[in-house]
Nucleic acid binder design. Structure first.
Length: 226
DNA sequence: GTCCTGGAAC
DNA sequence: GTTCCCGGAC
């Protein structure tokens, strides 16, 4: 394995992107992870709660406490009526519970007043408490059915390694990486491609101990030492 | 010690 | 732009 060189940055062609997408979709159909917040029948409330719980938190950990959270807080109103202390109690095992209980309650009050509706453009979404670039894209993807990318640190690592493109420390300012992610998910299976990248980065293209030996993508991967 | 489907205060 | 939040897994 070698480090990604900044000098070799070159934007991938559409053909390369299609190939990458196809292999990932094929892999995902057999190896994708199952989580209670995935699937087309999940309510928007349940889905957005999952996104908030997943901030900087391992999906496997969220899975252990997700249903309990939904039992205690089944809708926006129940969160809006809860005290920060009560919320923190349920959020504690997930970490980041002080901030999350404060911002989640602020958000719940706003969304409850709006009748459960979210604003339909990215900038307005990012203005909401606890909603930044990632979750606003997630809402645009799942709630409004846009072709939006879910670009987290793991997906960025996968793209950076495979396409040999360096990425910035803070993805919020990395327009090149955002643009690439957006192009990759710009197809008829936007949601599945997004989930496939997240799972592949988590299970195969790990930060440390990447499993290059069994990686389907290694033939064309700039990170793989042939 | 580092890392995780980020966001906001500083 | 940088730092902190947070617990649990590794």
């Amino acid at each position: 394995m070698r480090k990604v060189s900044k000098k070799e940055d070159s934007y991938p062609s559409l053909r390369q992107i299609k190939f990458f997408r196809k292999l990932l979709l094929n892999w995902f159909s057999k190896n994708g992870r199952k989580f209670p917040w995935r699937g087309s029948r999940i309510s928007n409330y349940n889905r957005i709660i999952a996104e908030i719980l997943l901030q900087r938190t391992k999906a496997e950990i969220v899975k252990q406490h997700y249903n309990e959270f939904l039992e205690v807080y089944p809708d926006w109103k129940s969160i809006a009526n809860a005290s920060n202390r009560e919320l923190g109690k349920v959020l504690r095992p997930l970490g980041l519970w002080r901030k999350r209980s404060i911002t989640l309650k602020k958000l719940a009050v706003i969304i409850d007043k709006s009748g459960g509706k979210f604003p339909k453009d990215v900038k307005a979404l990012e203005f909401l408490p606890g909603i930044g670039q990632y979750i606003s894209n997630s809402i645009m993807l799942f709630y409004f059915k846009n072709r939006s990318p879910l670009l987290d640190v793991n997906v960025a690592r996968l793209l950076s390694r495979y396409f040999g493109i360096s990425c910035k420390e803070d993805l919020r300012f990395d327009l090149q990486m955002q643009c690439l992610a957006r192009e990759i998910v710009n197809c008829d299976e936007t949601i599945t491609v997004n989930l496939a990248m997240i799972d592949y980065a988590s299970l195969i293209c790990k930060n440390k101990s990447a499993i290059c030996s069994t990686c389907l993508l290694r033939k064309n991967c700039s990170f793989y030492d042939k």
